[in-house]
Amino acid sequence: MTSSNKDFSIKIEAAHNDPSLTFNHTCLRVKDPVRSVEFYEKNFGMKLHAKKDFPDMKFSLYFLSFPKDNMKTNCHNEPDVFSSEGILELTHNWGSESDPEFKINNGNVEPHRGFGHICFAVADVEKECNDLEAKGVAFQKKLSDGRQKDIAFALDPDGYWIELIGYLNNKHGNTLPTKDVGMRFNHTMIRIKDPSKTLDFYQNVLGMKIHKISEHANAKFTNYFLGYDIPEGESWLSMEGILELCHNWGTENDPDFSYHNGNQAPQGYGHICVSCTDPSKLCSEIEEKYGDKITWAPKFNQGKMKNLAFLKDPDGYSIEVVPHGLCV
């Protein structure tokens, strides 16, 4: 059950007045973690910061990102993967790597479309694509394919799409940054049914801002790019922690239409996560202002894993809320 018919016009003050709010990570389930971690490290230069095992629930979490010089440490003196943007969380349910019938839902195949892709931004997208091809990385779309010649889509071992875009000399007219700042985990894309309801949710409930709207009239869809504040010297194209909402025109008028949220079978995409210094305050205000208009699973500090919460957006996608410095 989703909350797509709910009104999310109430502004949550804790979300709008908290500069610590961060779009922290995106979670994807993987079949074989050894294969997937090696793929992201070898081909993109990501770094594995932490691995967490949960024997009682028989799953493991792997936290990767592009190199970060300023990553803090948590109470265990380990890398604090919950305080930064641009974290990729890979979830492995034990045994899937040995099951020949197990397959990940990448979110782009009917009838299970919903999650679209993750996106890495680079200074020179043509050079990056050439390097990836030389390494044997498969592509869903090369730069030379289709109408859009400035984006490509690589494929990871589970068939997830990885969009590749350039932030220098781009068609959007952004003048920042002015030099190569390295590869960035720029955004995560999910498809949405009704932009008016979903935009209200992410702006009013979670305090995000719209940084860019891109309308494609010929193909009848619009993309909305949201996030928190843009760092000085950068643009929405080069920063990390952007959420792309893709609306295919007309879906909002079909009462029977819905997207697959990735957490129902067949599973794949898991969630996005926002972190802050005081998630208890944020969650308490959301509960107070919205009541049963919000679906929680679980509420803050009420699940097996403490000091976190999961709530659902109007399409039933999950959003995790955690504190900076969380020790798991």
Rank of each mutant, 00 (worst) to 15 (best):
N77C: 09
N77G: 02
P79K: 06
P79S: 08
D80W: 05
V81W: 10
S83H: 04
S83M: 03
S84Q: 10
S84R: 05
E85F: 11
I87D: 04
I87L: 05
L88N: 01
L88A: 06
L88V: 04
L90Q: 08
H92G: 05
H92V: 01
H92N: 12
N93V: 12
W94S: 04
G95D: 02
S96P: 00
S96K: 05
E97T: 01
E97H: 10
S98P: 04
S98F: 14
S98H: 15
S98Y: 13
P100K: 08
E101V: 01
F102L: 08
F102N: 12
K103L: 01
K103E: 08
K103Y: 03
K103T: 07
I104M: 06
I104V: 10
I104P: 00
I104E: 03
N105I: 07
N105H: 14
N105S: 14
N105A: 11
N105D: 13
N106R: 08
G107F: 12
N108Q: 10
V109W: 00
V109A: 06
V109S: 03
E110D: 10
P111M: 10
P111N: 07
P111F: 15
H112R: 04
H112Y: 15
H112E: 02
H112C: 02
G114D: 07
G114V: 11
F115C: 02
F115W: 08
F115Q: 00
F115T: 03
G116C: 11
H117I: 03
H117W: 06
I118V: 11
C119N: 13
C119K: 06
C119S: 09
F120R: 08
A121D: 07
A121C: 05
V122Y: 12
A123K: 15
D124L: 12
D124Q: 05
D124W: 15
V125I: 14
E126C: 06
E126R: 14
E126S: 11
K127R: 14
K127D: 15
K127H: 14
E128Q: 15
E128T: 15
C129F: 01
L132M: 01
L132V: 00
E133K: 05
E133Q: 05
E133Y: 00
A134H: 02
A134N: 02
K135P: 01
G136K: 11
G136V: 14
A138L: 03
A138K: 13
F139T: 04
K141V: 07
K141G: 00
K142D: 11
K142M: 08
